[in-house]
Each structure stands twice: as C-alpha cells, then as structure tokens.
Amino acid sequence: QGKQVTITHSSATNSHWGVAALEFEKVVEALSKNKYNVVVQRLDNEREAVESVQLGSQECALGSTGPVGNFVPDIRVLDVPFLFRDYAHARGVLDSEVGDKLLEKFKARGMIGMVWMENGFRHLTTGKKEVQSPSDVRGMKIRTMENQVHMEAWKAAGVLPTPMAFSELPSALQQGTVDGQENPIPVILAGNFDQLQKYLYLTSHVYSPGVLVCGLDFWNGLSAEDKKIFQDAAKASVKANRSRVEEDERSGVQELRRRGMEVREVTNREAYQEAMKTAVANFEKQFGADVLKTLREWRPK
C-alpha cells in the first residue's frame, strides 16, 4: 500500500466537487504507480478543511473559496460582483499569471494553492415574490454567505443580506424566514431548492471560485518528480470540475424547469450591476481601482 494522502471535499460523490476529487485520486495513483494512496473523504465544514491542511492533519482539500478569504485575505478581490463576464473570462484570468500571483500568497499561510477550481456563477432565487427588475429586490431578505464583499454589494442594491449557516438555509427558505438566496446552479440543484423556491433568475451576479490546496510541509517533502505528478493530477481535477459545472449549468437549468421552477433569463445584467454601483466605489478603495480594472478588462493574449 502506498503512502496515504487524504483529500477532502464538501459535497456528494456525484457532484462538481466529488468528481474533481476522484479524478485527483485516479491521476495521482496512476502516475505514481500507486506509490501514493489517495483517500477521498467528505468534510462538509470547509473552514475546518482548510485549517486542517494548514495543520497537516490532512494533505489536501478542494472546495469553494468561501472560507479561504479568512486565511488569505488577498483573494477576496475575486468576490467582487460583475467582475467577470462569463466562464471564459473568469477561467482565463485565474489560469493566467494574475491567478498564479494570488496562489503564491497561500505560502505565507502554510499552504500551497495548487489550482483554481470553481463553484460557478451565482444566481438569485426567490420564494413567493417575483423579481422583475433590480428595484424589486429592495427590502427583500436574501441569504448570503458570511462574506463582507457579497453582503456589501447586496446592501447597495437595497437588499437585506442575511448571512446564515448553509445547514439552516433549507428550513429558513421553507418557512419564509428569508425571501430568497443566491448560489450556483449545481448547489441549487443538489440542495433541491426547487422545492423551497419558486423563481430562479439567471443573474450570474458573481463568480464563485474554488481552489485545491495542499499543506506546505507535505509539499516541501515531495521530490520534484512527485510534485509534477500532483500538479498534473490537480490540472486533471480542474478539468473534471469545470466540465461538470458546465454540464450542471446546462442540464441543471432544464432539470430545475422540469421540476416546476420558473426560470427567468436575465438579459439586462447591467441593471443589477448599476444597482450595486455604490458598493463598487468602496471595493475600488479596498482592492485598488486599477486592480479591478485590470481584472474586468482582461482579454486573452
């Protein structure tokens, strides 16, 4: 039996995180000829997973960047709404030297940022009340992540952003404790939110990145040859993750429609962007106007 390498993710085996972890396992074991025995485990608490990588109680973790900003504050810039036009734009930036520079910052916190992954673009859903334009969301209680950037942006749009543990969200939506929530399609689909929410708006208001991290001590203990193996596996893992997100987004919207959800295309994303404008000034102060501009206007070379 090879040396055990534990990697955790926060979702079902058959999900955009599960398939990525399995691909990582498959490639590492194949390329290293079973010198390493990769063990994939599910760990719902993503904060705990990142902390464990830092401590070295597990070698790697993959998942959304939700809690990662609390470890590496620089990556919060990626949470700014309407930063990326589409998947090509987001992935292009993250795979370029801009993304690499951000991954470099993980080292100071005892981790290696291996590759950027993704949760997908986040979309808004609501229960009883239909939103036809951004002005309709004013005064609505929308569950957001405990993420300062997200909350600030929604506040600017007049929403009452309500951070809440994900485990409490289903009952809160059911009982109407909050009027809506926002998440990527794979999460909406896997969470069966169609039973709790009537409307889905394809707002794509913010891109939710993911990341595969490994412990710095573990990494430093690898030979150059083995490092290459893990890097290749990480790349294969991203591929599996992204193609699953695409598939979920395509078939997921249809599936949600089939299950009876009213899906609203949002042709006028600029209106939402406009609604969040007052927050943008703050973000420019916080992250640097030039940095945001570079990210927004990034084009493939």
Partner: peptide
C-alpha cells in the same frame, strides 16, 4: 498561536 492569522467570518477578529 497557529491560527492567529485566520479571521472569524462575521466578526472580523482573529479566530
């Protein structure tokens, strides 16, 4: 000691 650079989400203080 080890986690002092980690922020507590919501309170923005060290965990």
């Amino acid at each position: 000691n080890r986690v002092r650079f980690q922020e507590m989400a919501g309170l923005e203080i060290s965990i």
